[in-house]
Amino acid sequence: MDYLPFEQPIADLEAEIHDLESQQDESAEAVELLRQKKSELARITDEIYSQLTPWQTVLVARHKNRPHTIDYLSLVFDEFVELHGDKFFGDDRAMRTGFAKLDDRKVLVIGHQKGRNYKERTENFFGCAHPEGYRKAMSKMRLAAKYGLPVICLIDTPGAYPGIGAEERGQAQVIAENMYEMSRLETPIVCVVIGEGGSGGALGIGVGDRVAMMQHSYYSVISPEGCAGILWKNAEFAEKAAEALKFTSKNLKRLGIVDEVIPEPRGGAHRDHHMTASRLKQFLGKSLKNLCDMPTDELLNQRYEKFRQIGVFLEETSQEETSLAD
């Protein structure tokens, strides 16, 4: 287990429990002690995870054992048939796309993929997609709309890739076009932030009929490090920036940006991939059931209104705060 700095009490207790278990002492006292320690562990884990700071949430969202898109592809779906390439420039490994089966329902899945070891992470540019990734996503979404498959987008990126090639191939252009086309794509779209919802890189596959977040994910206009660098002139203020940006699932639910927060198992998604996946699956099934029966006009109108109402400002005539997001 890789423990995060604030998980030290959990690490200590788990080490104690491990020791007790390895002694194989079956006396009533030892059994009772073990029982006590385990319930203490549950209590402390719940306590720590119920009051994560925004910065700690970022660390959990980036945890290297956190389930990624390819983990969900095997745990949530019965089959995944990868479709590669944007038919224009290349096959971006930071973005995975393909047919999948959610129980009996045929769907198209799109997801950022970070990679777990160094080799994978380098190949996937740490989950930062290039323009070809966004173009690939759009071309597969068009395919899905043509054949009536709903689209599921799993968002997990620090941001779209910042590089020379990315700019040369139109990073800003493809993100803009994806939002534009997704807003009118004639098939249901469900988006879930599973880890990091990094800015335009997230939103480039983030316009949908339902938008949800895993409990300990975050979704932000800018990374906390980026924000600290600009506003505090020093990336070391990332923790402060994380507080200020109010980007946790709880905040986003309150602001009316996400429809649902999917609860994670005790101690975060990285401690139990199976349970996390089954909760995600339940959410996807429920959402698609509602959306797939809806006439297309109604679906698109609702999608438009969903984003149309976002924004908080004052109208001077009334001097009242118009919180259209509520």
Partner: peptide, 19 residues
Amino acid sequence: ARMHEGILSLMQMAKVSAA
């Protein structure tokens, strides 16, 4: 997108593009 309004600013990108 303006950082000081956080996610609300990011979502304006989608709102304007949809319009």
